[in-house]
Design a protein around this nucleic acid. Sequence first.
DNA 1: CATGTCACTATACAAAAGGATACCGGTATC
DNA 2: GATACCGGTATCCTTTTGTATAGTGACATG
Lengths: 132, 132
Amino acid sequence: MERAKISTEVCNQNITAVRDALYVLNGKWKIPLIVSLIHGPKRFKEIQRELKDITPKVLSKELRELEQNEFVTRKVFDTVPVSVIYELTEYSKCLDDLIEALRAFGQQHRERIIGGNRREEIMEDSTVLEVE
Amino acid sequence: MERAKISTEVCNQNITAVRDALYVLNGKWKIPLIVSLIHGPKRFKEIQRELKDITPKVLSKELRELEQNEFVTRKVFDTVPVSVIYELTEYSKCLDDLIEALRAFGQQHRERIIGGNRREEIMEDSTVLEVE
DNA sequence: CATGTCACTATACAAAAGGATACCGGTATC
DNA sequence: GATACCGGTATCCTTTTGTATAGTGACATG
């Protein structure tokens, strides 16, 4: 009973931590956006081209939120016309392990589905992952 | 130029992998739900109590999706009234690294915000993370 | 002189996700 | 008899997310 209490407390702490993490990284775009900046700073349009189905409105919103959380910085150069580059911060490096784990899982999961080594009943379902 | 081409290809692969991962783990609840099952199988109402602000409708939908992706199994016992337990699968263990990274980041990020070792301009913003 | 680029913003709208509340039939408890 | 638990479903509503389209102003290209 005492043990159970401690274990549920730990469990709640873990859930809280995970929910805190998801709170700042929510949505479809934040992590892909960070990944696209890992290989070097980029301009607005470059990012838009790389994440091809994002609209400027959404991109601009996501970038603002990442800026507020100190994962990216926005730098404006007064060339003509102005160029704006987005760059990852030092702090964003604390996401490296997370991103690597996500990447590894994503890759592995896709292979599993393409390979078809899954239970038959579920194979029929086409909504599990969209493979192009 | 050749180098750049290779590097953008790798980058695109990474973005794709990350997006695949996010596709099956989307939304506010899937990962917290899995975390709540790590310490052992649970019944529907138990999970609902643990993730306290989830509604039964959403919980039932999330559990169904996790079942389709083979992260949890649903077992019905014909006691009176019936009891239903949800349990993590073997396959779900491939999420362990990811969950640990998410937990570590979430904890670290919360401490950073509570500690207040952030730039002043951003300190004013209250929307960064809800700390209760 | 028409057209296109850049980094967006604005407006309007549609779709999806999530939340609030009520309800079911059966059992157990008070 | 009233209430509560169980594992959900049904209905409605709000919030979030995404789409489509147009426009800005200064310049560069044809």
